[in-house]
Write a protein that binds this DNA or RNA. Structure first.
Lengths: 121, 121
DNA sequence: TTCAATTGTTAGTATATTCTAACTTCCATT
DNA sequence: AATGGAAGTTAGAATATACTAACAATTGAA
């Protein structure tokens, strides 16, 4: 099973929540993403089975090393792309939405090229 | 039915092929996209039912005004984004692949902002 | 004219993703 | 102890998208 956009998004969300909350639970992810908890439950099962997260008996979710690697990569892209779009004058909500889609589809090469050549702030 | 990424891609492909070929048929689209003709057949049926294309008795496909509008918008994005990425040093094949994904997901606002602020060539 | 290739269609399959609905657990408060 | 809420799970539905398989129609060449 390849990692898909949806999985990347869940991993990124877990990373972000782990910086805001003492522990991250399934229901926190559902609230953050505006998804139903059943959807998150199934998604967490997949992430667990593919070793991107571990879940304690209390339902606390932690990223594994490989999960963290993906989450951090995606989150870095998100921060860079949304700041850049905002800097170009795009409304911050729209900038965030677009970054949220671009971050998953862009190649490593293109992202690095943009990061290298585009300067702002 | 909203227009989705897949439909946008078919419309763009029809536009591109119409500039290269005397007439565009279903099989030409299939060849160009490396899809099976059954997939294209179903897709063309949808585009027809939603008034984005017309198809003659001979199977010749033409964009309607609304189809052309979308196709041209997407194709303009494609050309701009792929040239820009190439200009940044990204391999042309990768630049084209990335442009092909970005062109569908980016908002009008962000595209206009990038086009306005990013200069090259 | 008969056979094969080309084109197009339909039906059914597969995958990714999220949803609704119906439980189950567990815990706390009355 | 009983009730109710919060969290999590499972089964089944829905949608978008492309695929395989089987078949129909047309055309060109042997």
């Amino acid at each position: 099973m390849n990692i898909h956009e949806s999985a990347e998004n869940y991993l990124e969300t877990i990373l972000i929540l782990s910086q805001k909350l003492p522990v991250v639970r399934s229901v926190d992810v559902a609230t953050e993403l505006n998804f139903k908890k059943s959807s998150v439950s199934v998604a967490m099962k997949n992430l667990r089975e593919n070793n991107y997260i571990t879940v304690t008996n209390d339902g606390w979710i932690y990223l594994t090393d490989s999960g963290k690697e993906i989450a951090e990569m995606i989150y870095e892209r998100h921060k860079f792309l949304s700041s850049w779009l905002e800097h170009l004058g795009v409304d911050s909500k729209i900038a965030a939405e677009d970054a949220c889609k671009m971050e998953h589809i862009i190649s490593k090469d293109s992202f690095e090229a943009i990061k290298k050549h585009v300067t702002f702030k």
